[in-house]
């Protein structure tokens, strides 16, 4: 593994923001795990669009929407 990727993650609702550094080649599911959340309980957005959790993480911003909210 060479180097790392930095991401800025916003969690909604709540608006918590986390700056994370992950090993290059990490998956979106790794972001979710680092936040202490379950993949089954969230939808991760990149530029407003959902992304599959096994997609490789790219540098930049992600939004994590919590499914157990706002019924």
């Amino acid at each position: 593994m060479t180097g790392s990727v930095k991401v800025r993650v916003r969690v909604l609702p709540g608006g918590r923001v986390e700056e994370l550094e992950l090993a290059r080649g990490s998956r979106v599911a790794d972001i979710v795990a680092r936040l202490g959340l379950a993949v089954s309980g969230v939808v991760v957005l990149r530029e407003g669009s959902p992304v599959p959790e096994d997609e490789v993480v790219e540098e930049g911003e992600y939004t994590v929407l919590l499914a157990a909210s706002g019924g």
Binding site: G41, P50, L65, A67
Partner: peptide
């Protein structure tokens, strides 16, 4: 269908929804 699935569906439709905790 799960909450994750309904959430994905409304996001991909671009339908307006209010996502906050009561």
């Amino acid at each position: 269908v799960s909450g994750k699935e309904t959430l994905t569906y409304v996001v991909v439709l671009g339908a307006p929804f209010h996502h906050e905790n009561c």
